[in-house]
Amino acid sequence: MEHFIVLLLYLSPVLLLVVGGLVGRSRENRHYASIHQREARFAQQPMLNSKTVPAPETVRTSKMVAGSVVVSVDRFKQFLAALRTIFGGEVNAYSSLIDRARREAILRMREQAAGADMIINVRMETSSLSQGGQKQMGTIEVLAYGTALWHRKDHEGSYAS
């Protein structure tokens, strides 16, 4: 019995790695499925990062919208990234996480701008909230914000992209 407990203690980091990796992957796949589905819904709404207002005389209202999300990496990816720092190169384990976070933040911003004709001046900001110090990435927050515009309906088509 004692041996078993000692063995479990030694194996627990590995166990966390494997379980974390498996659960993390299935959650990532589910998240991507939901991102694709929601992105398709907003495909008709233009989103620009330029400041210029197209056809400013036809703008009815404008409103600032924002969306944010906090994500963290799973243990397995942390391990992969640590390995990667030995050899250098792209850290794929983190790329997909940040990609998911950005797209999720943008989607949340778009959900706030429901019914708007377009969102302009979109800005994005990423900050690290990690407790693990500077060495590992850990937890990040992504914020997306912009200005949603509603045009007057009698001018529809004048701002067509």
Partner: peptide
């Protein structure tokens, strides 16, 4: 943090 993904509390 073990499993990764969104930390909705934060």
């Amino acid at each position: 943090n073990i499993f990764g993904g969104e930390l909705s509390g934060y």
